[in-house]
Design a protein around this nucleic acid. Structure first.
Lengths: 230, 230
DNA sequence: GTCTATAGCGAGATAGAC
DNA sequence: GTCTATCTCGCTATAGAC
């Protein structure tokens, strides 16, 4: 007699609620906590125990979900890179399309490249601000630099191509050097260390991302244009 | 009878060699090893045991000489900061003095500010190259950012003062933003991650510090001058 | 999927012999 | 000043109960 097994007394709905539990939320909370901690102390300065504690999950779960500490780090870096790349790439495409057969403006191209980063840093979601700081740290590190290539080289190639259309007489080397300076300035801005506030005695606020990025676009649009005449 | 104690048979010169042993050399080797390791893996990514091993000294000596791992880190950062600041500050002073009552050129000022860093990075002493990478990492880190203030704020104030003389009509805010972009570009160059080589398919070489810094000075001299007209 | 318990290791620092 | 030995702690990762 296939009978009174207690599990048969649960309704399907009740079983469904209990079974997968809150796994997706926990995964997300782990990524958020890891993002915050890694962004301020780097890969080696954070322990999986700290991440688990901040995410309010068991210490074993980071390894269960992501395989290893490094797997967690990679997952954090990957998550928002995709979102950012999609927005930045689409923006550049739109600027080129809008120009038709003419030349797109350098300023419009840089704006498209930079604007999604600005929005990330000005976002009310602290996760995006943490992510910006994480990227800044990875970009200055020798050991993790290959992560930048993996995630951002395609987008950068698109930026350079667009600038080549806008500045057809520019030498390739000048374009790359100018890009190098741009990315240095951009990532330091993303690092948001508060140093500009301090140095300028409060005249400049790193918290005002809009102000920072407006200056950034203006400054480098001129710089690219001037460098193209060398 | 004050007699045949074996130590009395050593000449004073021999005693001198044996007594303080090789302490100064060991201190130096520790700083060099720590510099190399910290510059590539950061503070948390290095152990005192690794430093001791690379310096070929006992594991207890880093703590004996520097008190703690953090003390060692600070000592590494401090050692060359002084040398660099002295050279950069003197260079700026010389440019202002040479201009007399006239205006010094922006390009000369930036050259004085940047040139000693170039020499450090192009140096045959690998310690200087490691130090540049270390500064780049510290500058992008939120937790260690106060080390930058402690060691470099005075020099930066001198740079800004000099630029104020060269560009008397520039708004303060524009000067500080331009400085912010300059330091981002400079520190990324110091990080020497090899990314520009890769991105430019070999057109630009981060190993060629002279080329990098020549572009840097030209690019930012124009940038400061243009920003001063805003 | 979750959690307890622990394996296995290596960290930073120091006491005390020399 | 140097080195041996060790204390104490916390780490990453996993085996196995639930």
């Amino acid at each position: 007699m296939p009978h009174a097994d207690s599990s048969f007394q649960k309704t399907p709905a009740a079983r469904k609620v209990a079974a997968p539990k809150e796994s997706p939320q926990r995964r997300r909370r782990l990524l958020d906590a890891a993002e915050e901690l890694f962004s301020s102390r780097g890969f080696y300065g954070v322990t999986v125990r700290q991440v688990a504690e901040m995410a309010e999950v068991d210490v074993a779960l980071p390894n269960y979900y992501f395989g290893s500490k490094r797997g967690l780090f990679d997952a954090v870096f990957h998550r928002r890179a995709e979102v950012l790349n999609e927005a930045r790439g689409a923006g550049i495409d739109a600027v080129i399309a809008a120009a038709g057969d003419g030349r797109p403006s350098v300023e419009d191209i840089l704006h498209a490249f930079i604007q999604p980063v600005l929005e990330a840093q000005a976002s009310s979601d602290p996760g995006w601000r943490n992510y910006c700081r994480l990227v800044a740290q990875v970009n200055s590190s020798a050991v993790f630099a290959e992560m930048m290539s993996t995630h951002f080289d395609e987008l950068i190639a698109k930026l350079i191509s667009a600038l080549r259309i806008a500045l057809p007489h520019a030498k390739e080397r000048e374009l790359y050097w100018a890009y190098h300076f741009l990315t240095g300035a951009l990532t330091l801005t993303m690092a948001d260390t508060g140093r500009i506030d301090h140095l300028s005695h409060g005249l400049c606020h790193s918290a005002d991302a809009h102000d920072a990025y407006r200056h950034l676009v203006t400054f480098f649009a001129r710089g690219f244009t001037a460098a193209a005449n060398d």
